[in-house]
């Protein structure tokens, strides 16, 4: 893949050839293997995949929040015009929170349990702006209003454990917005929430993105959530992107057998009396250390042939489309009508 093909002009975040290595005496293992993607301002890219696909590692690597035991390699990472391919600690501190900020899955463990909402918000605000405590408090209130927390001034004095799951996630979002970032990395932000609350949080994220023109990298395992929030999607399997493109295109006409399998494995609006059987994907996702030499999906793939066992299929952009695919024997579009 040529660099220019993967990076639409004016991309807010452009990542090329990102790998994450688990260092091991018997040889390094690539938990994430040569992943490339880009996010434009005002756009949401969803990274979807099952556990172990490397989605969260990818986001943590961008924030440089990975433990030292994991190595990060990249051909190129640029964020808002700034080169972050091999950033110093100082470089990353300058952008973390103020250019890109992260929303975590579990706000209870991401928030400090012994500090009030106000203390945490004010701390986050004053990290990025030199303003007085009084002004910071006003800004904190403004942020809580922005994430639609009712009776915001009363909430400032609360501790995280006193808040409901949905409120905690709103506080997390407020904290992420404290440094006025341009890019939000959202790692399964609604997975721990109930359906009704998760819907509210997704709506909030969509609104904030539209109003503030944010770019968003949205990590999830839930295809339904992808449909509801994302413009483009990258499907990851065992540390690699296997297919990417616009959400409508990829979901209506999946070409990688894994993408198609994921979609087919979900119930499709049948009732039990219809006797419809879900299509299974046999086996399980391989751990990175035991990844087969060729295509990682080959052992579970019904379309696999000899070449799939030998060579890793590269992610190739289809001419004239925004679609990329890493498969030697993809489904033809007509086959999936």
């Amino acid at each position: 893949m040529t660099p220019s093909a993967s990076a639409p002009k004016g991309a807010l975040l452009d990542v090329e050839g990102l790998s994450i290595l688990i260092k091991d005496k018997r040889g390094d293992v690539r938990a994430v293997d040569d992943v490339s993607f880009s996010v434009a301002a005002g756009e949401t890219l969803a990274i979807v995949g099952e556990s172990g696909a490397g989605k969260s590692l990818t986001a943590l690597a961008l924030m440089r929040l990975l433990p030292k035991t994991l190595g990060v390699e990249a051909k190129r990472i640029t964020l808002a015009g700034q080169d972050l391919t091999s950033p110093s600690e100082l470089d990353i501190r300058k952008v973390r929170g103020s250019v890109m900020a992260m929303i975590f899955q579990d706000p209870l463990s991401a928030l400090n349990p012994v500090l009030t909402v106000e203390r945490q918000l004010v701390e986050a605000i004053r990290l990025h702006e030199t303003i007085s405590r009084t002004d910071a408090r006003a800004r904190a209130l403004e942020l809580l209003d922005m994430v639609r927390i009712p009776a915001a001034s009363a909430r400032l004095g609360e501790y995280p454990h006193r808040l409901s799951g949905g409120m905690r996630q709103r506080v997390m979002i407020a904290m992420a917005l404290a440094g006025r970032p341009k890019l939000i990395l959202a790692d399964e932000p609604t997975t721990a929430l109930d359906v009704t609350i998760s819907g509210q949080i997704l709506d909030l994220l969509k609104e904030l993105q539209r109003d503030l023109g944010l770019g968003m990298l949205f990590i999830t395992h839930d295809l339904h959530v992808v449909r509801s929030v994302a413009h483009r999607v990258a499907v990851m399997y065992s540390g690699r992107v296997v297919e990417s493109g616009s959400v409508a295109d990829v979901f209506e006409r999946p070409r990688h057998p894994y993408t198609e399998g994921l979609i087919q494995a979900r119930p499709h609006g049948s009732f039990v009396t219809d006797g419809h059987r879900l299509r299974e994907i046999a086996g399980t996702v391989p751990v990175p250390a035991a990844r087969p030499p060729g295509c990682a999906f080959e052992p579970r793939c019904v379309r696999a042939e000899a070449d799939c066992r030998q060579v890793v299929p590269p992610l190739v952009r289809e001419a004239g489309t925004p679609r990329s695919l890493a498969c030697f024997h993809p489904l033809q579009q007509e086959q999936y009508a």
Partner: peptide, 11 residues
């Protein structure tokens, strides 16, 4: 469970 495994268990 992961989506691909959910189908196995539901079946």
């Amino acid at each position: 469970l992961d989506v691909s495994v959910q189908a196995q268990v539901l079946n």
